[in-house]
Write a protein that binds this DNA or RNA. Structure first.
Length: 572
RNA sequence: GCACCCGUAGCUCAGCUGGAUCAGAGCGCUGCCCUCCGAAGGCAGAGGUCAGGGGUUCGAAUCCCUUCGGGUGCGCCA
């Protein structure tokens, strides 16, 4: 039950009724009409802008239109009072009976409270992480990983059919370097002294097991073969991907599709995709102008095979083949997009690092070219995470292989903390992550604060006497703090829906923080006003009511946390 | 030079896709609240020309233009 969505329909019906009576013209655009909680709760329970939005197209003014709508809305069974305020807001105060019904609905829906059919089963592809399979994930990958995963589960919760996907970059030069690095470790495993790993190769110890595995599998037979590279490469990639999957599992992330870039090339999909574009007239051979301003010193003016991305909103056309005729990385992306679209996705979401900003338009251009503009592409760019330890920035040197791995962070502070903190900020805002702060058990730490609210509720429920008699009666919840919480509970589905539509999971994190805050506030009122406590001896009806009330709050907290992939803990 | 992101309180950031006593939260600062289900909390005070300027309309922190300031990226790397 989402009373705001419900009342939006009520408002629309009221307009339709007036149209039918000939008091309003037909064909009014309802898309900007909203029904939302008013900023100030004293204005009522639901506020709609219908009169202001429709006044002009209806050829009247907001106050007059509001006056027309007022009696129609007042006739609704759940509406207690209608008032017109300000420039033409219509405020509805609902009859008190609606709240017990709303709370009862929450208790009935349990774990499903907040879920919806918003997406109507539309197929959505969320691609995230997609780190090169050349080593373990590092902190930089954390944010995109968590963000993508939370967004995927948010969309699934909202009625979309979501596929979580990882694109394996197993076709470029970097995996040959990986193979060479692994081969060195192989020789090392056979007893050779390899010394310092030459620069340009991957120095990390994590390739030692790959070398050992190769030695175990092949003995020294690879040394005498000159075709060892593909074999070593495949083994190394496979072991790196196992490691990456393990890293992701530590963050409770499990993607279902791991899509190989190489498979696109070997299967001919890349050539096929280019042929399709060619046929549609989106490809030509030509020269790109050098970038404005400083011309790169190594600039050579050469002909390339180009995609007419500029026809689809990109700044310039994009190279599909290098000057030597081989495919660019982007060509694989083109084939990959074609593949995704062929699989029937209506929306493609890419979660990328902020350094891929220049890539957004060409991805949209490709999808547009293949789908005729029908498939939507949303690229979510995640800004950098800055690590701190007690206020001091953590230094990382990539050259020396001294980067902080994702695993290091998760091992130190726990998956729940990492996940919540990564989501407690808009994706396009940079994020500071201080090891000391995020593990602190105080209200300064939002993860803790929200979890604490949930644990406190569980604590009360544990302490409740078993043999209460009577029935809950939500009409007994009349204190302002209680009423505020009921409103907040009722808002939950709306918060989820808004977050899903905007592809912004951080909104849920903020909602949960606010909900927790209202709860802690009510709790403390119980210190000053003992009659507000949850468990009251000898007043079973009140106690039962408040326990049911707490349970409803708990569903909001737990369901919201679950969407974010954070465990709702019962004790701390 | 071009494109994208950002600019809100001393600090870190929200602001529900244009709404109303709307300028908010947390930290920090000042002062309060445990005989009581978890004080691991809560309440109150001080603090901002929403970077500057213009425009769009009933209405702008939010949309458009522009200036300034910060970040990222910019043919064949992946």
């Amino acid at each position: 039950m989402n009373i705001f969505a419900d009342f939006q329909k009520v408002v629309e019906a009221a307009v339709a009724q007036l149209v039918e009576q000939g008091k309003l013209p037909a064909g009014l655009d309802m898309s900007k009409v909203t029904a939302e909680p008013p900023r100030d709760a004293t204005h009522g329970d639901i506020s709609t802008n219908v009169a202001m939005v429709l006044a002009k197209p209806a050829g009247t003014n907001p106050r007059a239109l509001a006056a027309l709508l007022e009696p129609v809305l007042a006739a609704h069974a759940d509406v207690g009072k209608v008032s017109v305020a300000g420039p033409g807001f219509i405020n509805l105060t609902l009859k008190p009976a609606i709240w017990p019904r709303a709370l009862a609905a929450v208790l009935g829906q349990k774990d499903a409270y907040g879920s919806s059919k918003l997406g109507q089963g539309e197929k959505v592809n969320v691609e995230y992480v997609s780190a090169n399979p050349t080593g373990p994930l590092h902190v930089g990958h954390c944010r995109g990983a968590v963000f993508g995963d939370a967004l995927a589960s948010l969309l699934a919760f909202s009625g979309y059919e979501v596929t979580k996907e990882y694109y394996i970059n197993d076709a470029g030069a970097q995996v040959d370097v990986l193979a060479q690095s692994a081969f060195l470790r192989y020789r090392e495993a056979l007893g050779e002294q390899v010394g310092e790993i030459p620069s340009g190769l991957y120095p990390g110890d994590y390739l030692k097991p790959v070398g050992a595995a190769l030695a175990k599998e092949h003995g020294n037979s690879l040394l005498s073969r000159n075709d060892w590279l593909p074999l070593v490469r495949d083994k190394a990639i496979s072991m790196m991907m196992d490691m990456i999957r393990d890293d992701l599992a530590a963050l409770a992330i499990k993607q279902e599709v791991f899509f190989s870039e190489k498979s696109l090339q070997t299967s001919g999909a890349v050539a096929g995709a280019l042929a399709a574009l060619e046929k549609a007239g989106h490809i030509y051979v030509g020269k790109l102008p050098p970038p404005k301003g400083e011309t790169p010193p190594d600039w050579e003016d050469r002909e390339q095979t180009l995609f007419r991305a500029s026809a689809f909103g990109d700044d310039t056309d994009r190279a599909l083949k290098k000057s030597d005729g081989s495919f660019t990385y982007f060509a694989s992306d083109v084939a990959y997009a074609e593949n995704k679209i062929a699989r029937g996705f209506g929306q493609l979401i890419y979660v990328l690092g902020a350094d891929h900003g220049g890539y957004v338009k060409r991805l949209q251009a490709v999808a547009s070219a293949f789908s005729g503009g029908k498939v939507q592409v949303d690229v979510k760019l995640c800004q950098l995470v800055k690590l701190f330890r007690n206020g001091e920035p953590v230094k990382m040197s990539k050259r020396a292989g001294e980067f902080v791995t994702l695993r290091d962070v998760v091992d130190e502070v726990g998956a729940d903390v990492v996940r919540f903190m990564m989501l407690y900020r808009k994706n396009e805002a940079p994020l500071d992550f201080d090891f000391a702060k995020v593990t602190e058990q105080s209200k300064d730490n939002p993860v803790f604060y929200v979890q604490y609210a949930h644990a406190r509720i569980c604590s009360v429920l544990r302490n409740a006497p078993a043999n209460l008699s009577g029935t809950p009666d939500f009409a007994l919840l009349t204190d302002e703090a209680e009423v505020a919480l009921i409103r907040k509970i009722v808002e939950f589905p709306r918060a989820i829906e808004a977050a899903a539509l905007a592809h912004e999971p951080h909104r849920i994190a903020f909602y949960l923080y606010e909900l927790a805050s209202e709860f802690h506030s009510l709790w403390n009122r119980g210190k000053e006003l003992p009659q507000l406590r949850f468990i009251l001896e000898g007043q079973d009806n009140v106690t039962l009511t408040r326990l049911a009330f707490l349970t409803a709050i708990r569903y909001c907290l737990a369901n919201g946390l679950r969407v974010l992939g954070v465990t709702p803990v019962e004790e701390m």
